[in-house]
């Protein structure tokens, strides 16, 4: 076979598995703190809960260096375009954790100012419940995401989930009342 001539150890595996393994162990989050949840996200990064146990302690200020966006807090109508822009600036493959009920559903703020669920703006992989979710909940969400990455498809492209940069939803959002979704938001919805 030719392998007999190698004089050091080797390992055989499917490339796909190796890529998934590597990806799941090196997720770099972007700092996208918005509200209360951001404080708990920072607490998760600090010594007591120590997110570096999962190889994720480097929060990147620049979205171009990050592959995970933790949307920590309520997303206002004014912030939604910014959020989408930051998401678009991240390199593929990228993942999103929606942290807290405000990011996931609007939470208790069912009103004119808050986007009722960040999944109207970006596709979400893991939702972390709580108001705010404790660091343990966030860690669980992160582990869930790791599991998803290590079992998911590596070449998953997300046209169907609305992650393409130019994807826009033609139909208006339901039930906006007197409000309008900011017209400049490219709105996509996961399935």
């Amino acid at each position: 076979m030719g392998l007999e001539d190698l004089n050091h150890n080797f390992l055989t595996a499917r490339l796909e598995d190796l890529v998934r393994w590597a990806r799941s162990h090196s997720v770099w989050p972007a700092t996208f703190g918005l509200a209360c949840c951001a404080i708990e996200m920072m607490a998760t990064g600090a010594a007591h809960f120590d997110i570096s146990r999962f190889g994720m302690e480097i929060f990147r200020g620049s979205p171009r260096q990050a592959d995970l966006m933790i949307v920590a807090g309520r997303v206002s109508q004014k912030m939604a375009p910014v959020l989408r822009q930051v998401y678009d600036q991240m390199m593929e493959p990228k993942w999103v954790i929606s942290m807290g009920v405000c990011a996931s559903t609007g939470g208790m703020f069912n009103n004119y100012a808050i986007v009722q669920g960040v999944d109207q703006v970006v596709p979400v992989d893991v939702y972390a419940p709580g108001c705010p979710p404790g660091p343990e909940t966030l860690l669980h969400a992160i582990l869930t995401l790791h599991q998803q990455i290590s079992t998911g498809e590596i070449t998953r492209r997300r046209e169907e989930t609305g992650a393409g940069a130019e994807l826009a939803l033609d139909a208006p959002l339901p039930g906006r009342g007197v409000l309008h979704a900011p017209s400049h938001v490219a709105v996509g919805r996961p399935h």
């Binding site: 109508q77 069912n110 004119y112 009342g177 900011p182």
Partner: peptide, 22 residues
């Protein structure tokens, strides 16, 4: 507080809370 192109003044009483049905 609101985006520049927002219409209306949200805290007025005749401005709806803007509930989105769950």
């Amino acid at each position: 507080l609101m985006p520049e192109d927002w219409e209306g003044h949200p805290l007025r009483k005749d401005y709806s809370v803007g509930r989105v049905p769950v």
